[in-house]
Nucleic acid binder design. Structure first.
Lengths: 137, 137
DNA sequence: CTGAATCCGACCAGATACTG
DNA sequence: CAGTATCTGGTCGGATTCAG
């Protein structure tokens, strides 16, 4: 997984050199603003397992408040990443599921999760080392 | 319900089914907390192009304050994603560069940037459609 | 059950001024 | 040039309450 690149001063991938727009961020922020919040990623991960109802999501994501779940699903729907299917039953049932675009995003998130797992220990170690040499003085 | 995931089996990727830990987020948050803030990603992207000095980063990332640049680089160093090389010259020069782990992260970010570019238009369109049907009434 | 609305605290981030 | 310290404000997120 480690970058096979040899030159530090060059790009790290061949497909997109991270900077085809020059100094611009090319809209990375657009995605990160969405992924940056506390819950969006977790909701996408849960929906990647299959369609879920409101209460199912609430129970599947410990700690999320109704407010944040509502806001998060609404934003995802707004951006075309999820669908909201209302079953006119009694009591009402609402089903959420990823759109094809949402599913493609979940692949990105999955890759990020892989990276996280692979490097979590190394990060924790580096952090401990830094804290030890700086904090203790 | 405790385990509704058993009968779903609709994962979107084969490598890692997004949920090998059951109900846990597997530390995705650890990465997202780092990537979530406004500047970390931009700094990593800039450093992916090559080593940079403090002032170079400041100029390359329009809008970043000295405070945030300082905090961001410090956090990246702490997590072992960047190195800080001090040249004992006059005036002092400090060079920042990605570590191998940082470079591997920049690959993830690059993939995310690719996704962003590919889907930005679709997101904007979906958002406009949603705003049009909901906001306008 | 599925939300929306409101209040409120916590944290992030910008501006500014100062130091080595 | 390369930071740090302090003040302040805007936004995110939680708890509660109300509604369809």
């Amino acid at each position: 997984m480690s970058g096979p690149n040899t030159a530090v001063g060059s790009q790290v991938n061949g497909g997109t050199p991270l900077g085809p727009c020059g100094d611009d961020d090319c809209g990375i922020r657009d995605v990160l603003d969405r992924l940056g919040d506390r819950w969006t990623v977790l909701v996408v991960v849960e929906l990647a397992k299959g369609s879920r109802r409101y209460g199912e999501l609430e129970r599947a994501i410990p700690g999320i408040s109704q407010r944040m779940l509502s806001l998060t699903t609404k934003r995802l729907c707004r951006d075309g990443l999820t669908e909201r299917i209302v079953h006119p039953t009694l009591p009402p049932q609402v089903e959420y599921r990823l759109t094809p675009m949402g599913r493609s995003l979940s692949v990105m998130i999955s890759a990020l999760a892989d990276w996280s797992r692979e490097n979590k220990a190394a990060i924790a170690e580096a952090r401990a080392r830094w804290d030890g040499s700086v904090g203790t003085a």
